[in-house]
Design a protein around this nucleic acid. Sequence first.
DNA 1: CGATAATAATCGGGTTAAAGGAA
DNA 2: CTTCCTTTAACCCGATTATTATC
Length: 533
Amino acid sequence: MFPPAYQPHGVKMLYNGEPVDLTPAQEEVATMYAVMKDTDYATQAKFNSNFWQDWKKILGSNHVIKKLELCDFTPIYDWYQSEKEKKKQLSSAEKKQLRDEKAKAEEKYTWALVDGVKEKVGNFRVEPPGLFRGRGQHPKMGKLKRRIFPENIVINIGKGAPVPECPMPGHNWKEIRHDNTVTWLAFWNDPINEKEFKYVFLHPSSSLKAQSDMKKYEKARQLKDYIDKIRKTYTKDFGSTDPTKRQIAVATYLIDRLALRAGNEKDDDEADTVGCCSLKVEHVKLLDSKKIEFDFLGKDSIRYLNEVAVEEKVFKAIGDFQKGKKSGDDLFDRLDTNKLNAHLKEFMPELTAKVFRTYNASITLDNQLEHTDGSIVPEKIGDYQRANKEVAVLCNHQRTVSKSHGAQMEKLEGKMAELKALREEIVIDLERARKGKPPRKDEDGKTKRNQSPEQLEKKLEQTDNKIQKMELDMKVKDDLKTVALGTSKINYLDPRITVAWCKRNDVPIEKIFTKSLLQKFTWALEAEPTFRF
DNA sequence: CGATAATAATCGGGTTAAAGGAA
DNA sequence: CTTCCTTTAACCCGATTATTATC
């Protein structure tokens, strides 16, 4: 339940060139600062104000080190780098031994007895202290994330069950609760935003999580029976004279067609991102010929950039929503997620905006998988990945392009050029062989092997196949460079679709689901080959 | 040429931030 | 509305696998 207690490293930072004594708390904070110095925190102005403010709070009024900003952290930074280097130098056997020892010591924290069943705990470690980064331009970037102590932690455990021993001598848990209406095992206040909480939950493989996961997909499947009515209704209301109704119609349309998130209101101390209901006027641009461009930052400050051809009435409605408003104003000024979800519940019990994402993701996969034309397993896996990609693009699941992507593509281009040059050689050789001319000399001046036209034709075909395959591979690689397939697989795609497809196509399920996904989806593994979402 | 070592690229799963939504 | 809880998300980093270099 705890990160290893702080170990002083005995390295001092310098002030005016002189070593300064530090208390353990100061040393911990100084280390954080030093190790983060060369990250992108350093380039962000917010970092400094947040960090020094926090540190002064920790030191209190009687701290001895003045003008901390002027201290030299280089010795601590160097110490940290050398520690990292030392760790790297360990042999793999030594690394494994360290890993195993750690796992053994933590074993007892990794399980919970739930209704008599031993279940894996998901995140049993308390988040260690550090510097908060946040995603995108976060107002709290660089803030000190203080160490969590037992006094900060509330434990939730069955009445009469033995309370876990507090692993820090001299400390005690904040509170012991017995609440069987919630799923968390422990929580503490988020040190970055004390109004928020961090929880310890069960592992995704636990039956509790599996049950709610299955429920989620069953609810999304239920939407099939209501979607026609919902679509008919919002299409009708695109032109409604009731402005609220009209906004609800267009918002529902966007959530359904573009898989936008609901878009709850956000506080000023959070990153400035939006979803459907919180879209601002400037995020949507009317283009020519009934096309609309969306350009905004969504969850995790991931950019959503999409040019969509929409129905004329939607085009007109969005233009009307923008009329008389300025940049920064809400596009849907009569709407919030509460109202929208309340409206959705009129169609189907428990229907909320996020169900559309699950529904559309899963049904897209199911439909796309109909185009499975590969004949061997690797080709079929390619077909699956293409289907998976459609979903990832729909949901805008992105990843950062790997640093080496450009170099990798160049390398492939080089290989491709070689292959094409080889092909040209073969073509010439083939011409000569057909005319009965003797083989030419290669670049070393040696005479090439004499080959029959048939042999050369075969070689040409093989080379053409190689070129074709490589072209396809390169295209796939480039297409997928910003697309994350994993997120939808874990969160949006009903695993029964995949299981059924594997069974129908004789693809081993292990080729699609990793070990941990198989554990998470055990409830779905018995799906019939005929299962359709 | 094949075997082995070195390096590159990908994979897998843990971590924790940031959403949605019920009460 | 806020508080509390649960799901969803990208990223990090070590392990594994693929590729290339070297013997």
